[in-house]
Design a protein around this nucleic acid. Structure first.
Lengths: 151, 151
DNA sequence: AAAAGAGTCATCCTTTCGGGTGATTTTTCC
DNA sequence: GGAAAAATCACCCGAAAGGATGACTCTTTT
């Protein structure tokens, strides 16, 4: 995490330099308000990056595509069996793909939903299929349920 | 690393320029600094989030919306929703095939298990897929669970 | 600096699936 | 007995899925 601080500092310094350069070139006359706004912008941009980067995704684009599916009742909450997941070496991205496979989406649809190519989806599928010991996607879904990876 | 800073700086500078151009065009009359700063903050927070998620190649959100469903192995406590089945005109044989599809068997394996040809399995599949409104077997499984036809 | 892990994307090739169509044989029910 | 429903099987064709492999980028770790 020291690396994050370092990068943050470097980026921030460069940004401030750029901003000051811009200010000296064009804005120094009569516009102290913009400098203030720019500083706010920098702070919030950093905050946004921190938000977007931490934990591999707090806010992003695809939830509406995924969440738009109908919700089957309001049963008890499901939580992934993290022991199983880590024991099998299944990454978060692979589990994400497996979840969409279980919802009946095709590889192409998953790619559209997650903004990646169909080939990437196929790669993730192949890996997670191998990890759960399946040779078909329906089998992978069944195995995922048995292993507590899917609701 | 440094390329990021460079891109960030350039893009940020361009954005600031655009914002200021917009201000020159439309906002110069009402110089309410707080609103202006807040707008910049929101825009740049979104920009930062976009940047953050770009590098990470998306994110994984664990969908917490799940269906109520526990016994995954067809354990005790599940009974087929006969109303749904009859309402959709699904025959017993078709439901049988659908059950094996949900277990992850291929058409060939199902044929072997039920002592019929693969072509017959495909015919049953096509019919039941049409009846539950699915175009893929994984989708049919999901629909079957939603409709109370599968555990 | 090097290595490892994760994610992304691509190509080639084979198998499986799914749609459409047509047909024959049971089974069920009036 | 005959109609209707269900089950069975076959063929063709296009699309989807899956396996194998290689490569590139970014991040974290060593």
């Amino acid at each position: 995490m020291k690396r994050h601080a370092l990068i943050f500092g470097v980026v921030g310094g460069l940004l401030i330099a750029v901003l000051q350069w811009i200010e000296y070139r064009f804005l120094v006359i009569e516009h102290s308000g913009e400098v203030y706004g720019a500083l706010i912008a920098v702070v919030f941009a950093g905050f946004g990056i921190w938000l977007g980067t931490r934990q591999r995704g707090g806010a992003n684009q695809e939830p509406q595509v995924v969440e738009e599916e109908r919700e089957t009742g309001g049963g008890p909450g499901f939580s992934v069996n993290r022991q199983q997941q880590q024991g099998l070496g299944i990454t978060a991205r692979e589990l994400e793909i497996l979840t969409l496979v279980a919802r009946g989406l095709s590889n192409r649809e998953i790619g559209v939903a997650l903004f990646v190519s169909e080939n990437t989806v196929k790669t993730h599928c192949a890996r997670v299929f191998d990890k759960v010991g399946a040779v078909r996607r329906t089998q992978a879904v069944q195995r995922g349920k048995e292993l507590g990876l899917l609701p």
